[in-house]
């Protein structure tokens, strides 16, 4: 179901704005760790909605499935298990650290804005228009076909990276168990 272009734009800005508000007031400035985590989940939702509005349905679904459905559940799980509260986190001790982080974030943001406005490289045109994607079997089919043909090397390298991560985490967990 296609919305009119104007409506898509309006929704895009609404979701981006709401996501930004959740990120700022919920996650960064929030005091309660559980509330912070739930705000982050809501922000993922807003990002996913933006993806869906940009016709990237697969990214939207995976964004929710992986980030909101799996990774954040683990975050919340750990927060509850450690029963972390504001006292333990002791946010006040590093004002310098906070200021440094804020400075770096703003710097990164400024760099993004600058590179988008003044960058010379144009995105590689591979001829994928929304109509073409739809006629060749939809978003998912096109992504999977590209992933297993043109982009097989980066795909396999990423999976090796993930495998190394898994082996590493198992090794770390095992070492702790052997010490006991």
């Amino acid at each position: 179901m296609e919305l009119a272009t104007g409506a898509t734009d309006i929704f895009f800005y609404i979701f981006s704005g709401v996501g930004f508000l959740f990120a700022l007031f919920g996650v960064v400035l929030g005091k309660n760790p559980i509330s912070c985590a739930f705000s982050l989940v809501l922000m993922f939702f807003c990002i996913s909605a933006d993806f869906a509005l940009l016709q990237a349905h697969f990214l939207a679904a995976v964004q929710i499935l992986v980030y909101a459905g799996a990774i954040m559940v683990l975050f919340v799980f750990v927060i509850m298990l450690l029963n972390a509260d504001t006292k333990n986190l002791d946010l006040g001790r590093s004002k310098v650290f906070q200021a440094g982080a804020a400075f770096l974030c703003l710097g990164l943001f400024a760099m993004f804005v600058w590179s988008i406005r003044h960058g010379t490289g144009s995105p590689k045109d591979v001829g994928l228009t929304p109509e073409k994607v739809l006629s060749s079997g939809g978003n998912l089919r096109v992504i999977s076909e590209l992933m297993f043909s043109d982009y097989i090397l980066p795909f396999e390298l990423t999976s090796i990276l993930l495998l190394v991560g898994i082996v590493g985490s198992v090794a770390l967990a095992k070492r702790k168990m052997e010490h006991k």
Binding site: A61, I64, L65, G69, N139
Partner: peptide, 9 residues
């Protein structure tokens, strides 16, 4: 288009 990925997510 994403079908049951939607259900899983």
């Amino acid at each position: 288009n994403v079908g049951f990925l939607y259900i899983l997510s």
